[in-house]
Structures are given as structure tokens and as C-alpha cells.
């Protein structure tokens, strides 16, 4: 059997002082799309932040292997360069830094690490234009400061654009559907779907089933109280939509 893209074993992790993840097991193979659903406070975003290495989030026990390597040994930027991408729930604004410049620096940092030649301004512009079509993004947003004054939908498009440019192996989408109207959701989902492929894995974190109508997962996991309490095929998402999270929480409490 090949090495999994991501292998999480009995992961316990804290956010600040609080133990949030209490024994997560999850294996993701290349090409697979996994959805993680769960009620507020179940640990969904903590899982995303632990994978990306956000300061303040600590692995207490258990392990996270990325292509067989211990992820806890890598700084956030090293993880990014190795191919882990996090689409943020709340993308951050950076005043005075043009979006175009920011993206170019990021792409070249990743390319340098991978031993690929860095792009000059013209080459990058060409690449960016091509990828911008994926998320129907306008030139105007590229010359503005990173996320500054962007609408919710524009910020999320910008996230998916970055994902397209950085060409990650594992993309973690943290509540990418939050704050989107139905049209924006469709655009984002189309962009994400276009990026699916046999070598790329995705972990789609969401509260609602509706995103999964557009980005159809191979597997669905339900997170509750810091553990995965139920896993299944895409139909599980529909069941959750119908019954809410209550029955699963009740079931897992009983079991």
C-alpha cells in the first residue's frame, strides 16, 4: 500500500490552554475529498489550524503524518511549501500590500522550495490571469491591498485563487461556504472542483450540507466533542441535513 497523503492517529490537541481534539483518527489518500462536519465548538477549525501549524495550537499526543513525515516538526511556512494549503474561514487583511505582489511572493517562495524557477512579474501575471478565470475574479481585486475592503465572497474567491496558484497536495478548506450567497457559493465550488485531481487531496470543513451539494465528497466524517463519531459516504451528509447533529451526539453519548 502506498503512503497516505495524511495520516492522523489518536490526535489530542489544545487551543490555548484548552484540550479540544480528544483522539482523532483520519487517513486521507491522494485524490480523495473528505468532508468534516460537525456542530459549532466540535473542533473543526482546531483541526484545520493544527494541520497548518498555527501558533497557539499544540499537539499533546498522537501523531500527524504528511506523506509519512511528522508534521509537528515543520514550521507553518515549511508545511505550506511542502504542499499543505489552508483556505481561511476569515482571510486576513494586509493594508498597503497589493494582492498581486503578495500572491507572487507566495508563489515564488513555494516554487523556490520545490526547486522550480521563480516567476518574474510578467510570467506571474500570465499565470494569475489564467487562474483568476477559475473563480471569475476581476483585475481590480489584484491591484488592491490583500483582502482590504473585499466583500465576503471576494475574500473567499481570493482564497481559492491562492490555492490554484500554489498548487498544493493537500487543501484544507475551513468553512469556505460561510458568509456566501448561493451565486458566490457556486463560483467557489466550481473553482474547487476544477482543482480536484488524482494527486491532490482535500479536507472540506463545513457546518452545512449545502456546500457538499456542489463539492461532492468521497467520505464524510462527523466531528463531535473533539472526536470523529461517525464516518460514511456522501449520503451521511444528507442524513445530517435531515436529522441535525442531535441524533449523532445522542448516539455517540449512548454508545
Amino acid at each position: 500500500m502506498t503512503t497516505p497523503m495524511l495520516e492522523i492517529r489518536d490526535l489530542h490537541a489544545t487551543a490555548g490552554e484548552t484540550l479540544i481534539l480528544k483522539g482523532i483518527d483520519l487517513v486521507i489518500q491522494p485524490g480523495e475529498v473528505h468532508a468534516v462536519m460537525g456542530p459549532n465548538g466540535s473542533g473543526k477549525s482546531t483541526l484545520a489550524n493544527v494541520l497548518a501549524g498555527k501558533p497557539g495550537y499544540e499537539i499533546v499526543s498522537g501523531s500527524v503524518l504528511f506523506e509519512g513525515r511528522d508534521l509537528s516538526l515543520l514550521a507553518p511556512e515549511q508545511r505550506a511549501r511542502e504542499g499543505i494549503f489552508l483556505a481561511f474561514q476569515y482571510p486576513v487583511e494586509i493594508p498597503g500590500v497589493s494582492n498581486m505582489y503578495f500572491l507572487k511572493q507566495a508563489v515564488n517562495a513555494v516554487r523556490a522550495h520545490r526547486g522550480i524557477e521563480e516567476l518574474d512579474a510578467m510570467e506571474f501575471l500570465q499565470l494569475a490571469r489564467e487562474k483568476m478565470k477559475l473563480v471569475e475574479m476581476s483585475d481590480a481585486l489584484m491591484s488592491r491591498s490583500v483582502n482590504e475592503g473585499f466583500s465576503g465572497g471576494e475574500k473567499k474567491r481570493n482564497e481559492i485563487l491562492q490555492m490554484a496558484l500554489l498548487d498544493p497536495k493537500l487543501a484544507v478548506l475551513d468553512e469556505t461556504d460561510s458568509g456566501l450567497d448561493i451565486d458566490a457559493l457556486r463560483v467557489i465550488a466550481n473553482g474547487v472542483n476544477a482543482l480536484r485531481g488524482p494527486t491532490r487531496a482535500m479536507l472540506v470543513i463545513t457546518h452545512y450540507q449545502r456546500l457538499l451539494d456542489h463539492i461532492v465528497p468521497d467520505f464524510v466524517h462527523v466531528l463531535s466533542g473533539g472526536r470523529i463519531v461517525k464516518s460514511g459516504a456522501k449520503e451521511l451528509a444528507l442524513e445530517l441535513e435531515e436529522k441535525g447533529y442531535g441524533w449523532i451526539q445522542a448516539e455517540s453519548a449512548a454508545g
Binding site: V97, Q105, A106, A109, Q162
Partner: peptide, 25 residues
């Protein structure tokens, strides 16, 4: 911290991230 982490998650070193934020400022 959020700005720094955002930049680092995109592959920029902490030092480059700070430079970028300062120059933007």
C-alpha cells in the same frame, strides 16, 4: 499574529512576512 500566520501559511518566512507588512504600512 493572524497576519503573520496568514503570510506564513502561504509559504513566506516570518521575516519576509514582517517586511511585507511593514512596507505595506
Amino acid at each position: 499574529e493572524d497576519q503573520l500566520f496568514y503570510c506564513r501559511q502561504r509559504g513566506l518566512s516570518e521575516e519576509d512576512a514582517v517586511n511585507m507588512i511593514v512596507n505595506g504600512f
